[in-house]
Computed example of a mutant assay.
Amino acid sequence: MLRRLALTAVVSLAVLSAAAPAATADSRPLPLPIPLPLPGPEGEDGPTRLTITVSDSGDPSAEGTFELRCDPAGGTHPVAGRACGRLEELADEGENPFAPVPADMPCTMQYGGPATARVTGTWDGRSIDAVFTRTDGCEISRWNNLRPVLPNVR
């Protein structure tokens, strides 16, 4: 859909650029349109670039803000290669680990601690802005599903 929209915009701009000189008395050439980047196939709209901020984990080495880049793996994330591998597995499974827990989901009333994490950026062609906690069984499971992107917290 995004590819079709971008292609339509580029074609429309090209047609208008070609028609405009004929409609004006001024014969000076018009500036060329700026080329727009076309997105790749679905799920490949750009590289993975995430900012992960972890607090109250109880582990000083896991606290702070980390950058994660994939393809190739890099950034300041302590286990970038493994984290990128996990994100690739989740993408291959068609799972969105950043989706919130559905409001009607029954969850066990267990507390996994005060740890929080916020993840922002781009993953699998999607804009990400997700918050993770460990306030009940569903949130603990959601956090654990995203390890090693998120630290191992107990």
Rank of each mutant, 00 (worst) to 15 (best):
T120W: 02
L16V: 14
T53L: 04
L150S: 08
F98H: 00
P151L: 11
T51L: 13
I140Y: 02
D92A: 15
T48Y: 09
A22T: 00
G94K: 00
L68K: 07
A99S: 09
S17K: 11
P102C: 09
D104A: 13
T108F: 07
G40C: 04
A9T: 15
A62D: 10
D71T: 01
R86D: 05
T133R: 08
D104V: 03
V11Y: 05
L68V: 07
V119G: 03
R3N: 12
P148D: 02
T76G: 06
G85N: 13
T51D: 12
A83W: 04
D26P: 04
D104N: 11
T24Q: 13
T122I: 11
S27R: 14
R154A: 13
W143G: 04
A115L: 02
R28Q: 09
I34L: 13
E95Q: 11
E93C: 04
E89C: 04
L150N: 10
E139D: 12
T65V: 08
D92G: 04
M109A: 14
A91S: 13
D71R: 09
P102E: 08
D129V: 10
F98D: 05
S127E: 13
S141M: 07
R28N: 11
G43F: 00
V101S: 14
G58F: 05
L2I: 14
S127L: 14
T133F: 06
L7T: 12
R142Q: 01
R126L: 13
A62T: 04
R142T: 07
E93R: 15
F98W: 04
M109V: 12
L150H: 10
A6R: 15
G113C: 01
P47A: 15
R134V: 01
L36F: 05
P31T: 02
P29H: 03
R126I: 03
F132T: 11
M109Y: 13
T135Y: 14
E93L: 15
P148C: 06
G46A: 12
V54C: 07
D45N: 06
S61C: 09
T133W: 02
C84K: 01
P60N: 03
G43E: 04
T53Y: 01
W123M: 02
P39C: 06
L87E: 08
C138G: 01
P114V: 05
H77E: 01
P102L: 10
E139G: 00
Y111H: 02
P72T: 10
A91N: 09
G58P: 07
T133N: 00
E89H: 06
